[in-house]
């Protein structure tokens, strides 16, 4: 919000110091704009907890009164309705995303390339917010083999690791090594794909 005095003193009179702006940790907006976001109730809770003085400034009775400003009552009620609707929508969206996440599967597929040569394809990690590039790098490092992110036949991204490392990958996901976090064990399945004769 306001620049602190010590900062001004340190920077001297010439270069104007930057204003430190507080951003809401829930919706990333400056708190005065939370009311237009899609998570007002959560933002309010956060602000009340972290910065009670600001909470009073933005959400006290007088503040709400003066906020009416140039708007008519009609507009105000419409705005409130819209906000509530938006919030409900955002919540439903988050819910659906969560459900989808729980339902999605990670597939570890062993694919035969030659008689006794295999590659391991890992598919579906991105649903758990795992950076595929980083994960591929991790596999390459731990197994000392080639590992890359490629598009499969369906056009989806998957990680292909050279060599048969399916069990090891399974263990790594279970133990949540490095970036491989947040995948429930039950959602991981091992599959084998034989080369077609």
């Amino acid at each position: 919000m306001a620049t602190s005095t010590e900062q001004e003193a340190a920077a001297g009179p010439q270069p104007k110091p930057p204003i430190q702006v507080l951003y809401c940790e829930v919706c990333t907006f400056p708190p005065e704009f939370c009311e237009f976001g899609s998570s007002l109730t959560k933002c309010k809770e956060w602000l009340k907890e972290e910065h009670p003085d600001l909470y009073d400034r933005y959400y006290s009775e007088e503040a709400l009164q003066s906020k009416m400003g140039t708007m008519s009552l009609e507009q105000q009620t419409k705005l409130e309705q819209d906000a509530a609707k938006k919030e409900a929508k955002a919540e439903a969206k988050a819910d659906a995303k969560m459900k989808k996440k729980l339902a999605s599967q990670v597939q570890i597929k062993r694919i035969q390339r030659q008689k006794n040569k295999y590659v391991t394809a890992i598919h579906g990690l991105e649903a758990f917010d795992i950076d595929l590039k980083k994960a591929a790098k991790l596999f390459a490092q731990t197994f000392a083999t080639g590992s890359s992110v490629t598009k499969n036949l369906q056009g989806q991204d998957e990680i292909v690791v050279q060599g048969d490392v399916s069990d090891e990958v399974f263990d790594m996901i279970r133990d949540e090594k490095g970036v491989l976090k947040g995948v429930p064990e039950a959602n991981v399945e091992l599959v084998e794909e034989k080369k077609k004769k």
Partner: peptide, 10 residues
Amino acid sequence: VDRGAIRFLL
């Protein structure tokens, strides 16, 4: 801009 426009701006 006035307050009524914020909603649309966002």
